[in-house]
Design a protein around this nucleic acid. Structure first.
Lengths: 165, 165
DNA sequence: GGCAATTTGGTTGCGCGCAATTCAATTGCG
DNA sequence: CGCAATTGAATTGCGCGCAACCAAATTGCC
């Protein structure tokens, strides 16, 4: 059984005060969550040819842009920690797209670099953004605006968590 | 090791044409993904007292609003399938918040209803939305606007996937 | 009635995402 | 120098999210 493409509308009949809060609350984050998963679904289709998952694609994007990076830096770019990255990078290495080696200068650090094959994959990835954009049906300005708001939102939320609530 | 609260800025030095696309692409969905995870982090903190994860909270929201629902309907509201809901509901049942029983009219269907304890939890959940809103630092209108856009986005993406790309 | 197609949930398998723990290397402080 | 504190990765454990597959009940068509 698969998820229904169009969920029931999030609106409900009774506008009781407390109920309103609980429903609005649902819309705030639920819609964000749903959009994120919907994006994931599109990427799943588009990235299938490349043999990448969406998080793996993000890692390759960063590596294509920066060349070689220690796991730590990669995690800072992607907002991910080693608990997520270590197994993911191991899979990318098994797939032959990436190499990992301990830094000579600092034996704690592990440098991640794209292989020849990984670097070559970049060419085929160039068409991905256009296909994703097409799937959204949004124009560039709207996407940019949304992006900016979401970035602000993430920053605010991270700050709130760091401050303990 | 935990994720760094403030990731490096997603901007990069060289504005080459193709690179631009790949970086913008990253911003579109990456920011959405990051915001979704950041929200999850805030909910994790706020919901700890209630003993709920965020997806479990969403299920309880729907049940509080609608009373009793078959798994199918629950999935339509939440955009989730049985592969996700079955184990989740089993955990909620183990926690004593929910009961599941086969429908008498249609033996295929499983009706999910909140228990006394599950219904009682609603009172304690009433303060959650306010705390989340506070963490975002956004005002109601902005949240509503964002919600609407994201809803449109989700619909467009789901349609695109259904149409095979 | 009888049989195929559909519907509904459940199960399995895999890949994140993240907290918590562990371990080695490095840094810093006396 | 010597030792505690810090840092960087890896590992473990658990809960989604989803595809793929399965079983049972129901519906529909003849």
């Amino acid at each position: 059984m698969t998820a229904t493409p169009s969920p029931l509308p999030a609106t409900a009949p009774l506008p009781g005060a407390a109920d309103d809060w609980l429903r609005l609350d649902q819309q705030i984050c639920f819609n964000l969550n749903a959009a994120s998963r919907a994006f994931n679904g599109v990427y799943r289709v588009v990235l299938k040819d490349l043999g990448l998952t969406y998080p793996q694609y993000l890692v390759m994007l960063v590596l294509w842009e920066h060349g070689t990076l220690p796991v730590k830096r990669l995690g800072e770019h992607l907002r991910l920690d080693s608990g997520t990255l270590s197994p993911l990078l191991k899979r990318l290495e098994t797939a032959g797209l990436v190499r990992r080696e301990r830094s000579a200068r600092d034996e704690r650090s592990v440098e991640v670099r794209p292989t020849e094959e990984g670097a070559a994959l970049r060419r085929r990835a160039l068409e991905v953004p256009r296909r994703i954009m097409a799937a959204t049906g949004f124009d560039l300005d709207e996407i940019r605006d949304l992006s900016t708001r979401l970035h602000r939102l993430t920053a605010a939320l991270d700050t709130a968590v760091a401050d303990g609530a």
